[in-house]
Design a protein around this nucleic acid. Structure first.
Lengths: 143, 143
DNA sequence: TTCTTATATGAGAATGATTCTCATTTAGGA
DNA sequence: TCCTAAATGAGAATCATTCTCATATAAGAA
């Protein structure tokens, strides 16, 4: 259950594995994402990074997302969130509309969902990714 | 199966029903949304409207969304889409990542999904809305 | 290790989406 | 029809994201 923080060298190897240069900016981004528990915005990232540059961070999160090392999360807030992409952990999010608290949940109906969608829309042959988010009220906000 | 276009008076009554003033800007937005088949952006809306003002349109789509007459759809494009909210029709979207083609599909596992999420996250008591989008490649783009 | 070069970075400007301001207009009840 | 609170419209302002370009750096070659 406990997430372990990867060592810098492991992160460098992850990057090499995808053919990407292991620059400090990228290693640092992955390191920060590994120790936060919630998806974070680029703004958050820039502040959390030892030397966060806005343009570089934007460039790198998109690049890392394209290579499946991080996942972009869309929480209907008008800006993107990012989290580490753990292939083995296909989780989704439940967000409190009052305080923006974000929690994870996992779900096994995605295959079923995908099959059903492809059956209904023969004009689509492949589903490459999905986004499932629930919006609700957390206990603290329900008073 | 066929969607009928509501008469202006019906739209006015819908607005009144929620306590909102039936202004021409709002009536027109609902009229446009009723005749397009896909979710549209605010930019699209402004062009499709007889007299579309940007600020007014933004204000009104959010307002109409808050009152559940329209639904905001998040397709990971960096800007919001809007569609009429037909309570009886809980559909979701499948988007082609190559050409942005959008199609609907419906799904019945939402209750199951919600129950499962609330079981896993006791810190949440209520789910008030959900977002499920699939991203894939449509037949035309698959060549 | 040092050299070389393609690639990445950083700072600021540019762009695009969305929100705000405020003077003017309008919906809808009296 | 009149009155007033609410809505509109035009532009400026803000926020997220992308672009530009001069400088720095990763990583393979020597």
């Amino acid at each position: 259950m406990k997430k372990h923080i990867p060592h810098k060298q492991d992160v460098r190897d992850m990057l090499k594995g995808t053919g990407l240069k292991a620059t400090t900016a990228r290693v640092d981004i992955l390191a920060v994402l590994a120790r936060v528990k919630q998806p974070v915005t680029v703004k958050d990232l820039v502040q959390l990074l030892p030397e966060g540059d806005q343009a570089t961070t934007y460039r790198n999160v998109s690049l890392l997302a394209k290579h499946n090392l991080v996942r972009q999360v869309d929480l209907g807030q008008g800006h993107a969130y990012y989290e580490l992409n753990d292939e083995k952990d296909d989780h989704h999010h439940i967000i409190c509309v009052a305080c923006d608290r974000i929690e994870d949940f996992s779900e096994c109906t995605v295959d079923q969902l995908t099959r059903s969608a492809l059956r209904q829309q023969p004009s689509f042959k492949t589903v490459i990714r999905h986004s499932i988010e629930l919006f609700g009220i957390c206990s603290s906000c329900q008073k």
